[in-house]
């Protein structure tokens, strides 16, 4: 076994290179250029949120990481090997948002069948218990609720004890308790060295559960960092004030002004250091009726990902 434990962190780093490595990946479907040159490296044990609006290329990228699609250009590797090889060894598993279940078999049979295909597996009962569906193990899949089916997909993903777990909108249909249990299970496995990449379009979920957020828009990575860093990048404040004769050049000369809009006597300024800008406006420009508003999380996300000109596609 080629494993070693890093001292000083609670994460385990396994041999075998980066959990995910994408180099210059492009993928098109006809005229749609879904992925436009994504470079991404995810280290083992990281919990990474893949955040973006519908149509950002998240799903296409995930398909390539899972070996379900091939890039037109560039390379994709998981745990130092071709995605299909990693899947064949049970090193990579995924929880998809929809489908992937046979309606006419029971919950337990589904996991048992899945387990039978892998060499290295965990106990079926343990997986059912961890996913919280041991109690409904004899129920037909077709009779399960959306949340129960999602837990079943999770149990199926756990059974091969994957080193990389890819989740596509994982908590869709789950109630609050289900969501909490789910993320608790994910967290405890990350400490064993499991890497988790989850796609979501909720900044809240990404911010709450991921070590790192990779923000994609129109098939490109537009931001990559911790939740705090992402928010900081997008979370400028807006200052509005009234000036008698606003002087564009003088206003732009104020340190910290990042955006400026003048409508008659009304001035709107975008800035990170809003206090300094406000002080300058009040002290040297004779500004009146000054107000400062902060952007929320969702607005920050919108700032980074929105683009009114192009239609969204899943």
């Amino acid at each position: 076994m080629m494993t070693r434990t890093q001292k000083g962190t609670d994460r385990t780093r396994l041999a075998g290179g980066a959990a995910i490595r994408l180099d210059g990946v492009h993928k098109s479907f006809g005229d749609l250029h879904a992925v436009r040159g994504i470079d991404l490296q995810v280290e083992q044990g990281e919990i990474v949120a893949f955040l973006g609006p519908n149509g950002a290329g998240k799903t296409t990228t995930i398909d390539m990481i899972l070996g379900l699609g091939r890039p037109d250009e560039g390379t994709v590797q998981t745990l130092g090997m071709a995605p299909r090889d990693a899947v064949s060894r049970g090193l990579v598993a995924a929880v998809m948002q929809t489908g992937g279940l046979l309606r006419d078999v029971s919950v337990a049979e589904t996991v048992e069948l899945t387990a039978s295909l892998f060499v290295h597996t965990r106990d079926v009962q343990e997986c059912l218990e961890r996913a919280g569906i041991w109690g409904i193990r004899d129920q037909r899949v077709g009779k399960c609720s959306g949340g129960e089916q999602q837990r079943l997909r999770f149990a199926m993903a756990l059974v091969s004890d994957p080193a990389l777990l890819v989740l596509d909108e994982p908590t869709t249909g789950m109630d609050v308790t289900g969501r909490r249990d789910f993320w608790a299970a994910i967290r405890s496995d990350a400490r064993r060295g499991r890497t988790v990449l989850f796609a979501t379009h909720y900044l809240e979920e990404a911010d709450q559960y991921a070590d790192r957020i990779v923000l994609v828009r129109h098939g490109e990575v537009v931001a990559d960092g911790t939740g705090a860093q992402i928010k900081a990048r997008a979370s400028g404040r807006t200052i509005r004030a009234t000036l008698d004769r606003p002087d564009r050049a003088a206003l732009l000369a104020i340190e910290g002004v990042e955006a400026l809009d003048i409508r008659g006597e009304s001035v709107t300024i975008g800035a990170h250091n809003s206090d300094a800008v406000a002080r300058a406006l009040l002290n040297t420009m004779g500004a009146r009726d000054l107000e400062i508003t902060a952007q929320g999380l969702e607005e920050a996300f919108m700032t980074l990902t929105s683009d009114a000109n192009e239609g969204a596609r899943a």
């Binding site: 060894r89 049970g90 290295h120 496995d189």
Partner: peptide
């Protein structure tokens, strides 16, 4: 830890 030593 999760084992990477797997076979098909």
């Amino acid at each position: 830890t999760i084992s990477l030593d797997r076979s098909t």
